[in-house]
Design a protein around this nucleic acid. Structure first.
Lengths: 210, 210
DNA sequence: GTCTATACTTCGATAGAC
DNA sequence: GTCTATCGAAGTATAGAC
């Protein structure tokens, strides 16, 4: 009788699971809790997913595919960034932040990863690679190219990348990882902090006034 | 018959709980698991602790008291740091790192906090305050004092503190928060990274060659 | 203070009617 | 594809003998 909307039940389950996992973590959310929120019985869920674990796997798979589809080569990254002035560079940083955390669904999955990485080695590897190591590699390549072109002072590009990018991790750790914020008022404050950060770096590494 | 060592059972339980909670998180460790590791029956544990939650509360209480006993005022911090040369300053940073994470027991409790802060608002508040906000305040006060004395370039001390201290959070997030490391070989690498970081900052903010 | 035994709850998952 | 009903396992915690 109510089965007229059978299309979408699977997706509704998955969206609900993402919401709940992001709030409480995979282990602290029960099948009963998910199905109650969706409005179905526990047993019905198993017509769509073989196990609770499979739901988590699909969620991580989704994030992984998002990154595959959006990834660019280091060469492209260098070409895009090395010629920018400070203001344009800041906008680029904000865009990157938005690519990672701008969409609520992706943000929630990052939170799930942040929680699961303590229990799951694969989750930790993905988290470390995508959120830390890969961005550092790109950032280092960009700084190295800028040094070779004489745009910024000579130095250790890896150390410079760590110093610059650490701030992004600080923002994530302090304002994004634990989900009690979601207030748009803080956005302007974050933007000001990023501006101040880039101002500092511009002054610190500029060979000439950019 | 074996009751000859009744002194210490409570402490053994607590130490075992810290070990297990740090590895798997509070919720993923059962009373059965703890008591089995200690070598007692489940019911015996309740002669020492009223509940599982009380054990966690005591663990956090312990960390909290450690910080109370070691805390110094901002004025003291400024006096200690503002006159240091870069090498001395680096040693100071390493000492601070060791104060937070040098003792295995404290390191484990930080890991428990890292996990619990997603489920427990008080844990998150403590984590945020002790690991991020308070150190940033101190660091900012130090930079502000150095600016006033003309030791470093004028600028926004808060932004400078964020830029400098973010690196410490990067190290924690990347190498300490998830406990799969514990290899002393990486220590030298971390020391090199810290040295490079301080070198970069020294060059960036020094008014004169220090 | 430790033991045996057990109460009570919640969990993930399954069987089978419709 | 959803339901009712239920299973077996694992969780926290308690009662009472020793």
């Amino acid at each position: 009788m109510m089965g007229c909307e059978k299309v979408g039940t699977r997706e509704r389950i998955l969206e609900t699971a993402i919401d709940l996992f992001a709030m409480k973590g995979f282990n602290d959310v029960s099948i009963r809790e998910i199905t109650k929120a969706v409005g179905i019985k526990e047993s019905s869920l198993y017509n769509h997913f073989a196990s609770k674990q499979q739901m988590l796997d699909e969620i991580f798979e989704y994030l992984s595919k998002q990154f595959e589809s959006r990834s660019v080569s280091e060469e492209e990254a260098v070409r895009h960034i090395e010629g920018l002035n400070p203001t344009e560079f800041m906008e680029m940083c904000l865009m990157n932040f938005n690519m990672y955390f701008g969409e609520p669904k992706l943000m929630k999955i990052w939170r799930i990863l942040s929680i699961e990485r303590f229990r799951n080695e694969r989750a930790n590897d993905f988290f470390t690679k995508q959120l830390i190591d890969t961005p550092l590699t790109y950032q280092s390549a960009v700084f190295e190219a800028m040094m070779k072109k004489g745009l910024i002072k000579e130095g250790d590009p890896k150390a410079l990348a760590r110093a610059f990018y650490s701030f992004m991790l600080f923002i994530y750790l302090r304002y994004f990882e634990v989900g009690h914020q979601d207030n748009p008022a803080a956005n302007e404050e974050l933007r000001e902090m990023l501006k101040a950060h880039i101002n500092f770096f511009t002054g610190a590494i500029a060979k000439y006034i950019l």
